[in-house]
């Protein structure tokens, strides 16, 4: 074991706790979520731009939470978490990417755009 088991306060996760970063993370994530909500509920952008905007907000929120709340970096005690995070990227690309490809091909064949009709995309 890399650290003692007797004193929970000695765990690196506890040692790394830091009010300022928690508050920053919370505020940043909340602001991004509020921005996405306002954009969607007010229909402030055309549909495709809206999609890009909320995807961007979600991506930034993930980075903010990973950094400020989970304290992931390359230091000795969080390297395993970071490795797990990086291993997750190919899975993310496979699952979301292939799903997107699959459904775009499906819609191409099953949901043809009829002129004058509101479409799915």
């Amino acid at each position: 074991m890399s650290h003692g088991q007797d004193n929970p306060l000695a765990h690196p996760e506890v040692q790394m706790a830091n009010n300022r970063s928690y508050v920053t993370g919370f505020i940043v994530a909340s602001l991004l979520m509020a921005a996405a909500t306002v954009l969607v509920s007010g229909h402030l952008l055309p549909p495709f731009a809206l999609l890009l905007a909320i995807t961007g907000c979600a991506g930034l929120a993930i980075i903010a939470q990973v950094y400020f709340l989970l304290h992931m970096d390359l230091s000795e005690h969080s390297i395993w978490n970071t490795v797990a995070l990086i291993m997750f990227i190919p899975l993310f690309v496979i699952t979301i990417g292939l799903t997107w490809w699959m459904f775009s091909q499906l819609y191409l064949r099953t949901m043809p755009m009829i002129p004058g009709m509101p479409g799915m995309h």
Partner: peptide, 21 residues
């Protein structure tokens, strides 16, 4: 194992390219 799940619903109708992969 992460790359094959669509073979459970090949008949969905997503066309030849996706099916081939």
């Amino acid at each position: 194992s992460w790359l094959v799940w669509l073979h459970h619903f090949f008949t969905m109708g997503m066309g030849p390219y996706v099916s081939t992969e």
